[in-house]
């Protein structure tokens, strides 16, 4: 299977350049920083000083689910940047270095080239999101009170879907240009644009992939999945398929020009 060959080559490459280790570790850090600082906020304020003498104010302890949401928000900013950074050269860089020609001159379809890369990176990102949320869940239980493991799993499923969608965007942008820097710029612009528009016009864009995190917030606050999340899920899956298809077409059309 040529698809499996490319997929294995990508996984091997990611192991060799340590992506399989450092990306999950960074996601763990991202996810535990917020629960820790939130928990120690009173002590931190006390230790750093700056409060007038005798001033006391109560800092309410957020509910456990809310703290897990903080980890998700953290991943949604720096995590996305890391996602875009590690994938910015995967096709664009190979085109630039001439590796893509070497691969595609063999009987490898453009579709398997794109989808195998997407799958290999999805695996890394999903594993990273999972261990990150697991660490966050551990600290939330330790410091803030009980949060069901199932909430963590549901958060992982929907948040993972959004991340995998972003990988689709990044791979599509990869096929547009030969410059990794430009790919990064396009991916981040598209993500920010999508999030901003869906956030501002949230009543019109309920089914937008970018609203998945907002729906997750509702879920974590109320404990039951809002109905719109299924629409958003369907749209996201369709969008991933479309993005990968478009990526294949642009790659073929540009014929490594």
């Amino acid at each position: 299977m040529q698809w499996l060959t490319i997929f294995r080559k990508e996984c091997l490459e990611s192991t060799r350049n340590f992506k399989w280790m450092w990306v999950p570790l960074v996601f763990i850090l991202l996810c535990i920083v917020d629960p820790l600082t939130t928990y120690y906020l009173p002590q931190i304020l006390e230790a750093t000083g700056g409060l007038p003498e005798g001033s006391t104010f109560e800092i309410p302890t957020p509910p456990p689910a809310q703290v897990m949401m903080m980890s998700v928000v953290q991943m949604n900013t720096i995590g996305i940047l890391i996602l875009a950074l590690i994938t910015m050269g995967t096709i664009a860089g190979e085109k630039k270095a001439g590796i893509a020609e070497l691969v595609l001159v063999k009987p490898v379809s453009y579709l398997s080239y794109v989808t195998a890369k997407w799958a290999a990176y999805s695996l890394i990102i999903l594993a990273s999101v999972f261990v990150g949320l697991l660490a966050s869940w551990y600290y939330v239980n330790l410091l803030f009170g009980e949060l069901a493991f199932s909430s963590m799993l549901v958060t992982f499923l929907f948040y993972g879907l959004w991340m995998v969608f972003l990988l689709g965007i990044s791979l599509f942008m990869n096929t547009l240009t030969k410059s990794p820097g430009l790919t990064l710029f396009f991916t981040m612009s598209a993500t920010i644009f999508l999030s901003a528009v869906s956030g501002m016009l949230s009543h019109l864009f309920e089914w937008s992939p970018a609203q998945l995190t907002a729906h997750l917030n509702t879920y974590l606050a109320s404990g039951s999945l809002p109905d719109v999340i299924w629409g958003a899920t369907a749209i996201t899956i369709a969008a991933i398929a479309l993005l990968l298809f478009l990526a294949t077409i642009t790659l073929k059309k540009k014929e490594l020009a």
């Binding site: 450092w22 570790l25 763990i28 850090l29 535990i32 120690y40 230790a47 660490a135 410091l143």
Partner: peptide
């Protein structure tokens, strides 16, 4: 600073994973 150090010592079990992850990251690099 004194307070921060004693706080760190008292809660070593909580901070240990955080520090461990940072050390592993540096060693890998």
């Amino acid at each position: 600073m004194q307070d921060a150090m004693t706080m760190l010592q008292e809660n070593l079990a909580i901070f240990a994973p955080l520090i461990a992850v940072q050390i592993i990251l540096s060693v890998l690099a």
